[in-house]
Amino acid sequence: MSGNKETLISQQQDPILQAFQSAKSEQGEDEQLGLFEQEKGTKVESTSELNKLTDKEVYKGFDETEYSASEWHSPAIANGPTRKEVEGWKEKYSGFIYFVPFEGDIFIFRPLERPEYREIVSNTTLTALDREEVFTEKCVIYPYDFSIEKIKKSRAGIASLLAEMIMEKSGFVAQTAPIKL
């Protein structure tokens, strides 16, 4: 019994889990209808009519997970991009897409590629802080309008933390210690 209670408490404190759960709960019937109408160009009169249409359509994600039309066109994360967009990014970047929340802000990023890294570090005019900003501008794919100008106007640590995470997911941090043979 206490194990279930601890699991419930840890789930309530996990900001990533909360963001995913709130994406489903915040989405109302009217929002679902509006998203469906925009994509299909058809007018839906009722929720039951929407369910009939969406039950017929199945969309497959990058990992072959199946989604209904309403799931496909709904935000994957509260106040974030749609599942369709996320799956498109996964396809484009071989499945390597990462999500991180920062006190109400959400960021989705991809790893840095070797040619991009070489180009950035070969620019001798950039300081270490400038490189962090360039790494984040290049790799953050959501929010859509993320830029160096926005980075400079935001909280000071965001670019550094994102750059650290980007570097880790780009293979610059060992996942295990070397093993002596």
Rank of each mutant, 00 (worst) to 15 (best):
F172P: 05
G3Q: 02
L126M: 07
S10G: 04
E132R: 00
K60F: 13
M167V: 02
S48M: 03
S10A: 11
L53V: 03
T54E: 10
L53Q: 08
L162Y: 01
P115Y: 04
E29P: 01
L181H: 06
V44F: 02
M1W: 11
R83T: 14
A128I: 15
M165T: 00
K90H: 06
P178H: 11
H73M: 07
E37V: 08
T54A: 10
I166R: 03
V121N: 05
E45T: 14
E103V: 14
K56A: 10
L50P: 03
T7G: 08
V44S: 05
N123K: 10
Q38C: 08
Y142P: 05
D55N: 08
T42H: 06
S48T: 09
M1H: 15
P101G: 03
I108D: 09
S25F: 01
N51R: 09
A174T: 14
G61F: 10
L53M: 08
K90M: 13
S25G: 03
G104K: 02
F107Y: 11
A163L: 02
R114K: 05
C139P: 00
E39P: 00
E39N: 06
A69L: 13
S170A: 07
I77L: 11
L112N: 02
G61Y: 14
L8R: 14
R155M: 12
F102R: 14
V140Y: 00
E168S: 15
F62G: 15
V58A: 10
L129H: 15
S122G: 06
E116K: 07
A163Q: 03
T47P: 09
S2E: 14
E168Q: 12
A177G: 10
Q38W: 11
R114N: 07
L161H: 00
E31L: 02
L17G: 07
E45G: 12
T47L: 13
V58P: 00
A23D: 07
E87S: 09
G157W: 00
E31S: 02
K56M: 09
A156L: 12
M165C: 06
K5N: 14
I77V: 15
D30E: 11
E26M: 02
S2L: 13
P15V: 05
D55P: 03
M167T: 00
S22Y: 10
T127N: 05
G28R: 06
K84W: 03
E29Q: 13
Y117K: 06
G3M: 09
L162Q: 00
E85A: 14
D63S: 15
G61S: 05
K90R: 15
D105H: 13
I16Q: 07
A19E: 04
T47H: 12
Y59Q: 01
R114M: 10
C139R: 00
D14P: 00
Y67M: 05
I77H: 01
E149D: 12
T7M: 10
E113Y: 10
Q27T: 10
E26I: 03
Y142K: 08
L129M: 14
L126S: 08
M165Y: 03
E71A: 10
E64V: 15
E87T: 12
L8A: 15
V100Y: 12
P115H: 07
N123Q: 09
E57I: 09
V121M: 08
N79R: 12
P143V: 01
A174H: 14
T42C: 05
V44K: 00
